[in-house]
Design a protein around this nucleic acid. Structure first.
Lengths: 225, 225
DNA sequence: TCAGGAGTGTCAGGTTGCTGACAGAGTCGG
DNA sequence: CCGACTCTGTCAGCAACCTGACACTCCTGA
């Protein structure tokens, strides 16, 4: 029940959330909570989506491509949802989802999800806003990556993805976010470290001097809200 | 009126379209049609969106960044719409829109657009699908660009953006789509030309050997539908 | 507590793509 | 049909990034 309220609050987060008590009960009844350890697979590319996932805690990477070209499309954080797009478009999942940290997710069956949103126009509107917001983020990512030197790309990723000035991912993960190779990313990271902009640890990058990082990124950062 | 019907058919294209006659009339009354010549600016980055645009003919590039990093996020073709996302999110346009060919667009005032979709759940659903589809396309673009050599990127763009096996854009435009520089793109294009996969003309690339291009692209092409 | 796995740091050598530039061909309005 | 503009084709030199590799540190589970 508490979780159902949380899920309701998340769809279209950023705006004021309200949902009728009866719907909350329905949600709570059908909602399942799944715990994943780091590296676990939530769903794999190619299969049809049977459920919508909502991230409760931790973070989940969306992976596409294989081998050296395996790339992270996006990192989902608490409050983000996924699986809805391929449900809507009736297409197989175009990417796999794997947890980047120990994570907890809520699982909603497709038909329940569709039913709830079909019956509540104001919820549907929030959903629309959520999808639109993801689209804007995805486009921003294109801007951040295309035609920009790696040193700026790395700075941008650190600024955009850090939570509480910390990025709890391996440098290989950062490289996958950028479509670059780990040694190249490491070179930039080491340099930023030497210059005192960040702190580097085992599977962790910490922001020390955010202002200087922004300068390094070469743009006004579109920090995630 | 004919245009109103066309617009109604477009939102959520791909699925079966229906709209009540009264709504069609409303649409027709408020719809304006604007003709742009190639290179014209439809809207510029930074300003608030006041209207939603629907492309009727031609094509429109969404440009972000400045100078050498000026990049094309997406190319809108007939049936595509834009301006809705920044309206929904109540944010300034994150990119500028310029026509890549002589084009015709329909303009719908924000409030009319919102009103129509507020009153018609089934239309709203199509809208949602349209936005979701754009999100999927944007993500696919990330996959196509990240960590892939330029020779493959160019082949992918040709396959994805060509209409009737023709790409009516300058090589500078292709370079902007990839975040690459024109000479680099030209090198790849010249090579593909020499090998007989494409034909190259003034502001035009034609597909000759699609199968070989797909092989060059190094993946199963996600041709636009 | 120890062994194996995961992650970081680093490097030499090769390749790719960029920079800035220029010549020539195509297009279009007057 | 001419001049201005746009676009293509090309190049030499250079910087950025990748490849494949290896040593070392950190973490984790048995």
């Amino acid at each position: 029940m508490r979780q159902a309220a949380w899920v309701a609050r998340c769809v279209g987060r950023g705006s004021v959330p309200h949902l009728s008590p009866s719907d909350l009960e329905l949600l709570a009844a059908e909602l399942s909570t799944v715990r994943f350890s780091r590296g676990a697979v939530v769903f794999v590319a190619g299969q049809m989506s049977t459920a919508v996932w909502v991230v409760r805690s931790g973070s989940i990477g969306l992976f596409a491509g294989a081998g050296a070209e395996r790339v992270i499309l996006s990192i989902l954080r608490p409050g983000d949802l996924d699986g809805d797009v391929s449900m809507l478009l009736n297409m197989p999942q175009p990417y796999s989802a794997e947890t980047l940290e120990d994570s907890i997710c809520h699982r909603l069956d497709n038909d329940l999800f569709a039913k709830m949103f079909g019956q509540h126009p104001e919820l549907a509107r929030r959903w629309l806003i959520a999808v639109a917001s993801r689209l804007a983020t995805s486009q921003q990512r294109l801007v951040d990556l295309l035609g920009v030197p790696l040193s700026e790309q790395v700075a941008r990723v650190i600024l955009d993805e850090a939570v509480d000035d910390e990025l709890p991912y391996s440098q290989a993960t950062v490289a996958a976010l950028l479509g670059a190779r780990r040694p190249s990313v490491n070179k930039v990271v080491s340099d930023l470290h030497r210059r005192g902009l960040i702190d580097v640890g085992y599977r962790s990058i910490k922001v020390i001097d955010a202002a200087a990082l922004v300068a390094q990124a070469g743009r006004q950062s579109s920090a995630r809200t």
